Simulated assay, not measured.
Amino acid sequence: MKKKLLSGALAAAMCLTIPTTVVVAPATAQVIESNQNQLESGSFTWGFRRSLVRYMEGFIAKGKVELSGPVKREGANFIFPLDAANSHLDAAGNGQLKLLGGLHFLGHYNKSAQRWDMDVTIDNFVLDVEGKKVTVRADYVTKGDLSKAPSSQDGDQISGKNVAFATFELDSAIKPGTNVRFINQDTAATAPGFSEAFLNDRYATGTPVDGPNLKLVSDPTKPFTEYGKESSVDSENRTGVIIGSIVGVLAAIGGLLGALKHFGPQFGIRLPF
C-alpha cells in the first residue's frame, strides 16, 4: 500500500514539473532578445542649419539660440543625449530613438512690442528609423511676427506636434546589439516642419542642412563600428564647394594647355588644336 502511495505522489510531482519547464523556456528567450536590442546610451550631434544659426546670432537678427535640458553645444554643433530608457529598436534595426532637450531660437527683438519677432521653440526630438532612412521629428511653438503664418490657433502663436523637421540616410542599417557611430551623414535635408516652424520658404522640403552624427551604445565593453568620416565642410555648402573645386580644376587644366600650346613647340611638343 505504501509503494502505491509513493508511486502516485511521484507521478503527480512529475506532472507538475513538466508544464513549469515548458512555460519558463519562452520567457527566457524573450529576455535574451530584449537585452540584445536594448540601448545603453547614445547621442545625436547636429548643427541644425548652420547658416540659420549664424543669422540668428549675427548682426542682423541680433538674437541667440538657447539650450534646454541636457543639450550641450560644441562650436557649431548641438549635442542631444539619447533617452535610452524610452528608445527601442527591433531585430531589424527599426524603431524610435528619443532625444533629451530642445532648442529656442530668438531673433529680431521688437522694442515697441517688447518681444522677439522670431521666437521658435523646438523640443521632444525623436528619430524615426526605417532601415537606413531616418526622420527627425519634434514639437514646435512659433511666436512673434506671424504675418507669414498660414493660420494661428490663438492669435499669437502656431504650433505642431511630432512634425518631420529633417530626413537623412544612414550609411548602413543599424544592427541591434552593436555599438555604432554614423559620422557626418551629409544626405540630411529639410522636411515640411522646418519651413512651417520658421515661416520661410527658403527652408522648403529638400533644402540641405548640416550632416548629423549618431552614436549608439548597446554594450560599453564592445568596440565601435564607424561609418563616414569627419568633414569641415557644411552640408548646405557642399554643392558649392564641389562646383568650385571642379571649376578650379578646369581652370588649372586650361592654364596648363595654354602653357603647352605657347611653349611646347620650343621643346618639340605640338598640340593638335
Rank of each mutant, 00 (worst) to 15 (best):
I79S: 11
I79F: 09
V129E: 03
E33D: 14
E66P: 04
F44Y: 11
L89T: 01
I122Q: 02
P220G: 04
T121I: 14
I18K: 03
D210R: 05
A251K: 02
S152K: 04
Q30R: 09
L10T: 14
A25P: 08
Y227A: 05
T207H: 13
T142V: 06
N37Y: 04
T45D: 08
F198D: 02
T190L: 05
P272Y: 01
S232A: 11
V233L: 00
Y140G: 07
A164M: 07
G144H: 12
Q96H: 11
K148M: 13
A13G: 15
S235L: 03
S34D: 11
L103A: 01
R115F: 04
T187L: 03
N184R: 10
K261Y: 05
S231G: 09
A191T: 04
P265A: 00
A197K: 06
M14H: 07
R49N: 14
G63S: 02
I79A: 10
W116F: 12
T28M: 15
G268L: 04
D117R: 08
T121Q: 14
D139W: 03
H88G: 15
F78P: 08
F168V: 14
K3I: 15
I32M: 15
K133G: 11
A164K: 11
P212N: 09
A173R: 14
S34C: 01
P223K: 07
G240Q: 02
D83M: 06
P220C: 02
S232T: 12
V134F: 04
E230K: 13
D186F: 07
K229E: 04
N110V: 01
T239G: 01
R49D: 13
T167G: 15
N35I: 09
P272S: 03
G244E: 04
L170F: 08
I18Q: 05
M14D: 07
L10K: 12
S195T: 12
D128K: 10
D128P: 07
V120Q: 05
D139C: 09
M118L: 12
I60G: 09
A61S: 12
L67G: 12
V136Y: 02
V65Q: 03
G258T: 06
L39F: 06
H88P: 14
F125M: 04
G211C: 01
P272N: 05
S245H: 09
V163A: 00
I269R: 10
D117E: 12
T28Q: 15
G228D: 02
C15I: 15
P150N: 02
T205H: 06
L257Y: 01
Q153R: 15
V120M: 05
N124Y: 13
T142I: 02
L257C: 03
S232H: 07
D83C: 07
F78G: 07
L39N: 07
A191W: 03
V53M: 01
F194W: 02
E130S: 13
Y55N: 12
A149R: 01
I122Y: 03
I246Y: 00
T21E: 09
Q36P: 09
G206P: 09
L10P: 11
D119G: 06
D186Y: 03
V141K: 12
F182A: 01
L199N: 05
S112V: 14
G160W: 00
T178E: 11
E74C: 00
P223Y: 08
V249Q: 03
F224D: 10
I243N: 12
N35P: 09
L97A: 10
Q38N: 09
V180I: 03
N184K: 13
N94L: 02
S87T: 08
Q96R: 12
G63H: 01
D123Y: 06
